[in-house]
C-alpha cells in the first residue's frame, strides 16, 4: 500500500535516505494469547478488509484452517495442545508478520522499494516493485512471507497500513470479540501488557511475560504469553529470533567490499596495460620464421 510517503524509515535495496521528514509515533499490536478464544474472527476480518479470499481447503483433522499462511491468508490461528502440571492447556496463537524493528525480509530484498518500513514501525510489501525472488522468505526469522503462485509476488500481513495511516486500528484488532488484540502506541501496549502479565502471575502463571524479541530489535506485533520462558510451546514461536548470521554475512559489509574488489580488478587490468604495455609477439621471432619460410 503506497499511501504514506513522507514517513519512511527504511526502503529495500536503497542506499540513500528515504523521505522521512514526517515523524509518527511507533505503533504496536498486542496479542494477548491468554484471552484469545480461537474464534478466528480476526482471520475473517483480515480477508474482508483486504478483500482477498483464499481457496477453500480441506479439514486436516485439527482446528488450524487454513493449515498455513499463504499469499491469500495473511494471518492464521495456530492451536497447540500441551500438558502443563498434569493439566491440558490449549494454547492458541494468532500467527502473522511480527513487523520487526530490524526486518530480515527488508534486509534481504534486492528490489528497490519492494519492502518499506514506515516510521511507525509497520513493515509493508509494495507488490508493484516485487520481482518474486523470495529473498524475503530467506531473510525472515519467522517464516512469514509467501509468494503467490498466480502472480509471483510476495504477500504478508500489512498491519493494515492503509487503516493505520488514517487513524484506524487494524481490522483484526477492531473485530476481536474478547479484546485479545489491542492496538495503540508501542508504549501504551507495553503498559497494557504489564497489567495483563500481573494478572496472569497472580493466577499462578509465574512465567507469564511479554514477547517483544530484542534479537530483531523488538517487534510491532507483540504477544502476552503465559509461558514466556518457552515460546516454542505456542506452535514453534522462536525462542530468541534474530536475523540469521548467514543472512547478515550475505547482505552485510562483504557486498560493498566485493564491489570495490571487482572495480579494483577492472581498473588494475587497465592500468597494467597502460603501465606495462601489451604483450606483443616479438619481431625477432616473426623475422626468424619469415627467414625459415624463404629458405
Amino acid at each position: 500500500m503506497a499511501l504514506q510517503s513522507l514517513d519512511i524509515a527504511r526502503r529495500s535495496a536503497t542506499t540513500t535516505p528515504p523521505p522521512a521528514v514526517r515523524e509518527t509515533t511507533e505503533v504496536a499490536k498486542l496479542i494477548d494469547v491468554s484471552t484469545c478464544i480461537g474464534c478466528k474472527a480476526c482471520q475473517a476480518a483480515c480477508m474482508e478488509w483486504n478483500d482477498i479470499r483464499d481457496e477453500v481447503g480441506t479439514n486436516s483433522g485439527v482446528y488450524d484452517n487454513p493449515a498455513d499462511l499463504t499469499a491469500k491468508s495473511w494471518t492464521v490461528m495456530r492451536y497447540a495442545e500441551v500438558e502443563e502440571k498434569g493439566r491440558l492447556e490449549w494454547l492458541i496463537r494468532k500467527d502473522g508478520c511480527m513487523h520487526c524493528a530490524d526486518p530480515g525480509c527488508l534486509k534481504a530484498c534486492p528490489a528497490p522499494g519492494a519492502i518499506i518500513q514506515y516510521a511507525n514501525g509497520i513493515v509493508d510489501f509494495h507488490q508493484e516493485n516485487c520481482i518474486g525472488c523470495g529473498y524475503c522468505i530467506t531473510g525472515c526469522p519467522f517464516n512469514i512471507p509467501r509468494i503467490s503462485k498466480e502472480d509471483s509476488k510476495a504477500y504478508k500481513c500489512s498491519l493494515c497500513s492503509d487503516r493505520v495511516a488514517v487513524g484506524q486500528a487494524p481490522a483484526c484488532a477492531k473485530v476481536c470479540p474478547t479484546g485479545a488484540i489491542q492496538f495503540g502506541s508501542k508504549e501504551q501496549m507495553k503498559d497494557y501488557a504489564d497489567k495483563r502479565i500481573g494478572d496472569l502471575k497472580s493466577r499462578g502463571y509465574d512465567k507469564a511475560g511479554l514477547y517483544d524479541p530484542q534479537g530483531v530489535g523488538g517487534t510491532h506485533v507483540m504477544y502476552v504469553l503465559h509461558h514466556a520462558d518457552r515460546p516454542e510451546l505456542y506452535k514453534g514461536l522462536p525462542n530468541d529470533p534474530g536475523i540469521s548470521p548467514l543472512v547478515s554475512l550475505w547482505k552485510g559489509f562483504a557486498k560493498p567490499l566485493a564491489n570495490v574488489a571487482l572495480a579494483a580488478v577492472a581498473l588494475g587490468s587497465l592500468f597494467h596495460y597502460v603501465t606495462k604495455g601489451p604483450n606483443e609477439v616479438s619481431k625477432e621471432l616473426e623475422d626468424e620464421l619469415e627467414k625459415e619460410d624463404a629458405q
Binding site: 529473498y135 522468505i137 530467506t138 548467514l246 550475505w250 557486498k255 566485493a258 574488489a261 571487482l262 580488478v265
Partner: peptide, 21 residues
C-alpha cells in the same frame, strides 16, 4: 537456502573477477 545465498554471491564475485582476468 541461506547457506546457498552466501555461497552463490561469494562464488559469483570470485568468478566475475576470474573472468575479468
Amino acid at each position: 537456502v541461506r547457506f546457498g545465498a552466501v555461497i552463490h554471491a561469494a562464488t559469483a564475485a570470485v568468478m566475475i573477477a576470474l573472468i575479468m582476468v
